[in-house]
Write a protein that binds this DNA or RNA. Structure first.
Ligand SMILES: Nc1ccn([C@H]2C[C@H](O)[C@@H](COP(=O)(O)OP(=O)(O)OP(=O)(O)O)O2)c(=O)n1
Ligand SMILES: [Mg+2]
Ligand SMILES: [Mg+2]
Length: 911
DNA sequence: ATCCTCCCCTAC
DNA sequence: TAAGGTAGGGGAGGAT
């Protein structure tokens, strides 16, 4: 308060900032080596910038008044072209957002400032620098829990800060050296690879995804002969049961018992029957005490999660030396003491002092998974993969053909799996997936159970809600608030009440579930809707460059995964975990993310993402928008959505081409929604079998593509691990190859056009649509067929994918001349009552490309034609025209910095 | 009404 | 020390 200052004061201790504003980031750390400067900055403690780029919330005047009320000092401060308001010297600063919109946050404020929310800025210290490439200012926060300086772990550059902290408190620089040497963070060059080699969650995610993919492939390639099933039927030797009519659908759920542990015990039979857990840490106590960082974080954790953790806190009773290594899986003996999968080892050891830990064996898990799936696939392909140790199986056919009872079948298949894998498993049976899963729960460990229809109702009422799939801790807490703990409780409560608490959908499914009803059929073809890579461990960036570098690595990773799936994406989301404002800088768990706010931001251009560089640049832009200081990042992820098969890009166009050939012209969208059902029918249907055979005759057009260089491959894949016992189940070479082949596992088998398109046209409409989808017949292909076989061989798609990803977007038009495209467009407008947005955009993208290629004359002809034709159409078409004009002009501006003269005046209401 | 964005929740 | 990933379902609330 001793400081009186005027607006726009650039002296007064703030010169330091002026000094930094020209500094390049790379030079910053160097500057901070001069510790006197740091101290000086710290003198400006409790400063807060409220204004960014001329927008102040609350309004400057009000802020000024507030400052006066609280005895603080108010400055307005100009730096570069940006104005900041600084409020400083306040023991307490609380500001209520009085504006009409949420505050435009300074970069370093991680709390969200919603309307009316009061923010406590007390703890912030502030300094700033200007980053190299960005015109905007970047801030860092220096956390300052108490008024005295000695506590503040100045967060300048971690090495610096640690040093300062330690010197003032512990005076043991030696320790620091040790820590900084052995600490490997995401900033290190090979972090990602090493992380993936050690991440169980990464392993089970990718493995699970591979099996989902594999099931699709097996189904596509399968010849309908199931060796296991045949053998089993033969041993039965009778066919009497086959005559049993109308057998009801029987769903089986099968799941390995404490999967990781069981695999581990294969090489440690001496530990069978003992409480065992799989974790990275060997012991439950760490060498160093970390009480200091933990107490605050744990307190915050309880505060944030207390309501839902309900006494079962993850961090309960943990002290400074309890291991926070996570238990991936624990044996049933350990579970008796209350140990659970996912629990921290330290906590588990408290519950179960005799707990024995075993290390991971990733290769072993892959091997057993593979054998599990192979075994089941020798009986049926009606499989929905759930994860690497678990699946749903429609057993109706098996039971019918072998004439076994459910329990006989269960005994048989469990015996076989146990024999082959060396690991126990459990199976549950029921009329739907829910019943099957609940049956498995009862069966475990190493058992089987059939939840029969006549007892379902009774059975359900005693089931705790926590057993229901989809009901987790948050839902459970809400239900507990309503006084509900069992399915029986839910059975007698009102739908309305549940829905208002849980939401419409969840409430509805819960009511069904409580009665044992599950309307969701098994899904054999699980289509990817998103692809992502995220790392929330080891994220500690010391400079912006480090972050950029990591972001680039991650961009490549996620883009490579996209290539692996053979899909394209139009939408990118950046996901950040940012240290919560009051959370300690050092996390309780070593290199963990600690307590964070989760932020995400999505692109909206809707353009196809054509390269890893595009991913990187988009992610960069999004990061800037999220306003999170790199030093507070604790997790980074990139997610790609709006996925489409290259065939589907055309599908947009395909829509009208398909519609064209079926005069009815019904909504195609339905097809894509019910991808599974019709396919099943087709597989069984007569009309289709011919085509299936054809397809199988010629499986070899599969483009081979390797992973671009840097990608890790260690953790990957369904390998030929399970070979040794394979002959037992050998039945079908094609299928076994799928299991062995690690290559192509990710690829959706590009089924080659070997179908006579004329035959296709004679099929019933829904089947035809399905085939078109399944075979990825591109409109281009259809076009070519329809318009007299142009050049069937130069399919541009797919082949461009390999090692060097092409930058430019794929367009089915790219190989066509305007003369060839014109009749297509004519056809389009004749057949469609209303233009489809994606069709419009696809066409427009082609024109944009022409602009970028400086094909001005062509463009002129194009738009003359379009204008003439579209003029006679109604407003939706005019809109489509404008869309095309706009997108094309985008290309013009990019190439020439100027627009092309195009007639846009239809003299119509929509203008 | 319907879509989009930014979350939160759940499962393995 | 520790390796807290990945995908889908769904809701709130604003934009259209
Ligand atoms: N929080 C978790 C949950 C699971 N897994 C891994 C290890 C498990 O062994 C495997 C399979 O998960 P399950 O849910 O099937 O659990 P288990 O197989 O271990 O035990 P259960 O007998 O209950 O199936 O996934 C994990 O790493 N972390
Ligand atoms: Mg299991
Ligand atoms: Mg499982």
């Amino acid at each position: 308060m001793g400081r009186r200052k005027k607006d726009f004061n650039t002296s007064d201790g703030f010169e330091e900032w002026g000094g930094y504003k020209k500094a390049k980031v790379s030079k910053l750390d160097e500057q901070f080596k001069d510790e006197s400067k740091i101290v000086k900055i710290s003198d400006i403690f409790q400063g807060v910038a409220i204004m960014v780029n001329g927008i102040t919330r609350p309004p400057a005047d009000e802020l000024k008044k507030l400052m006066a009320q609280h005895g603080g000092v108010y400055h307005m401060y100009q730096l570069s072209s940006t104005t900041h308001i600084i409020c400083s010297n306040l023991p307490t600063v609380k500001i209520r957002n009085m504006g009409t919109k949420p505050v435009v946050k300074p970069a370093w404020i991680t709390e969200s400032i919603s309307l009316g929310k009061i923010i406590d800025f007390r703890r912030y210290l502030l300094y700033t620098h200007q980053s190299i490439s960005q015109p905007r200012l970047d801030f860092k926060v220096i956390d300052k829990p108490s008024t005295s300086m000695n506590q503040s772990t100045t967060n300048i550059s971690p090495e610096k800060s640690t040093k300062i902290c330690v010197e003032s408190e512990v005076k043991s620089p030696k320790k620091i050296e040790v820590t900084s040497r052995s600490t490997k963070t995401a900033s290190d060059p090979n972090f990602l690879e090493e992380f993936y080699n050690n991440s169980r969650l990464h392993l089970i995610s990718t493995l699970g995804a591979e099996y989902k993919q594999l099931v699709c492939q097996i189904r596509d390639k399968h010849d309908g002969f199931f060796l296991g099933r045949k053998k089993l039927a033969a041993t039965r030797g009778n066919t009497t049961n086959m005559q049993q009519e109308n057998r009801e659908t029987v769903i089986m759920h099968i799941d390995m018992d404490c999967f990781f542990v069981s695999v581990g015990l294969k090489s440690r039979p001496d530990l069978i029957g003992k409480p065992v857990a799989i974790a990275h840490a060997r012991t439950a106590r760490t060498a160093n005490d970390n009480t200091e960082n933990r107490s605050l974080e744990f307190a915050m954790y309880e505060e944030r999660n207390g309501n839902i953790a309900a006494g079962a806190s993850r961090v309960a009773n943990l002290d400074g030396r309890a291991s926070m290594s996570e238990i991936a899986s624990c044996s049933y003996e350990a579970r008796k003491c209350g140990v659970k999968n996912g629990m921290f080892l330290g906590r588990a050891a408290q519950l179960c002092p005799d707990l024995i830990t075993l290390p991971y064996d990733f290769e072993g898990y892959k091997e057993v998974s593979n054998l599990l799936y192979q075994t089941i696939a020798s009986y049926t392909v009606d499989i929905e993969a759930v994860s690497c140790d678990e699946m749903y199986v429609d057993c109706t056919e098996i039971l019918r053909e072998t004439g076994l009872s459910v329990s006989e079948w269960a005994t048989h298949v469990r015996g076989e799996i146990t024999a082959i894998t060396g690991c126990p498993c459990s199976t549950g049976f029921g009329a739907n997936r829910l019943q099957a899963r609940l049956a498995t729960r009862k069966a475990k460990p190493n058992g089987q159970f059939h939840l029969k229809a006549d007892i379902v109702e009774d059975y359900m009422s005693d089931i705790p809600l926590s057993d229901l799939p989809g009901v987790g801790r948050a839902t459970l807490a809400k239900l507990a608030n309503l006084g509900l703990t069992t399915c029986g409780d839910v059975q007698i409560s009102s739908l309305k009440c549940l829905q208002s608490e849980l939401g419409a959908k969840v409430g509805e499914t819960l009511v069904d579930q409580a009665k044992g009803i599950d309307k969701k059929p098994l899904n054999y073809y699980q289509e990817r809707k998103s692809i992502s890579a995220e790392i929330n461990y080891g994220i500690r960036f010391k400079s912006l460059e480090e972050f950029w570098s990591f972001l680039q690595t991650l961009s490549h990773e996620v883009y490579n995964r996209l290539l692996d799936t053979g899909m394209r994406s139009r939408c990118l989301t950046l996901k950040l975990m940012v240290r919560a404002a009051t959370a300690p800088v050092e996390t309780a768990k070593f290199l963990g993310h600690g307590i964070c706010d989760n932020l995400s931001k999505t692109t909206s251009s809707n353009q196809i993402i054509g390269s890893a560089d595009v991913v990187f640049n988009e992610a960069k832009v999004l990061y800037e928008k999220l306003n999170a200081p790199f030093c507070d990042l604790r997790g980074v992820g990139i997610q790609l959505t709006k996925l489409e098969k290259p065939g589907n890009v055309d599908n947009a166009l395909g829509k009208f081409l398909v519609k064209k050939s079926e005069e009815a012209g019904r909504k195609i969208r339905d097809i894509s929604n019910e991808t599974t059902k019709p396919l099943v029918n087709i597989t069984k249907g007569n009309a289709h079998s011919k085509i299936v055979t054809k397809k199988d005759d010629k499986p070899n057009n599969t483009p081979k593509r390797g992973r671009p260089k840097g990608s890790k491959n260690m953790n990957k894949s369904i390998s030929n691990k399970g070979k040794k016992s394979l002959n037992k189940t050998v039945q079908n070479n094609t299928i076994n190859k799928l299991f062995e082949k690690k290559k192509n596992v990710f690829l959706p088998t590009p089924k080659k056009m070997d179908i006579d398109l004329n035959v296709l046209n004679e099929l019933p409409e829904d089947i035809r649509n399905q085939i078109i989808k399944e075979y990825e017949i591109t409109p281009l292909e259809l076009i070519q067929n329809n318009e007299k076989q142009k050049s069937t061989n130069n399919q541009p798609k797919r082949q461009e994918k390999p090692l060097k990803p092409k930058k430019e977007d794929y367009s089915p038009f790219s190989k066509l001349t305007w003369e060839e495209i014109r009749p297509i467009i004519k056809h389009w407008i004749e057949r469609e009552t209303v233009p489809d947005k994606s069709d419009t955009e696809m066409i427009a993208e082609h024109f944009k490309k022409l602009a970028l290629e400086r094909k001005i004359e062509t463009l002129t002809r194009v738009f003359n034609f379009l204008f003439r034709v579209f003029a006679s159409l109604d407003c939706p078409w005019h809109d489509a025209y404008f869309t095309m004009v706009n997108i094309t002009q985008g290309g013009m501006v990019a190439r020439y910095g100027n627009v092309l003269a195009i007639n846009t005046n239809f003299g119509c209401c929509c203008m």
